[in-house]
């Protein structure tokens, strides 16, 4: 038996695998990373550049599609991790914002 802390108090109970394996919350970082692996076809921003939400950052060829990767918010590009022709794996960082 373990203890589960709830708003209504602490309870003696069993914890499930799913509960134990849940990932602790992490504050999102200012990095756009590859959701799926693929190849970089174009890099559309430079370091120091001001971008607006929705601006295209790069083109990622994956799942037989040239996917346009866009900025999810306004910001200034701090670092570009990718070059044209580069293969990127899942979760690889591509563009970092300040």
């Amino acid at each position: 038996m373990e203890v589960l802390r709830l708003e209504s108090g602490d309870y003696q109970t069993q914890l499930t695998m799913k509960f134990l394996k849940r990932k602790p919350y992490q504050k999102p970082q200012n990095i756009v990373s590859a959701a799926i692996p693929g190849t970089i076809m174009e890099v559309l921003v430079k370091e120091g550049q001001q971008v607006r939400r929705g601006d295209a950052l790069c083109i990622l060829d994956s799942m037989k599609m040239n996917n346009t990767i866009c900025a999810s918010d306004h910001g200034v590009v701090k670092k570009v991790y990718i070059v044209v022709g580069q293969s990127v794996g899942k979760d690889a960082p591509m563009v970092e914002f300040e």
């Binding site: 589960l4 709830l6 309870y11 109970t13 069993q14 914890l15 499930t16 509960f19």
Partner: peptide, 8 residues
């Protein structure tokens, strides 16, 4: 089921 996750 109080035995698992206190039944939440």
């Amino acid at each position: 089921q109080p035995m698992v996750l206190a039944g939440v």
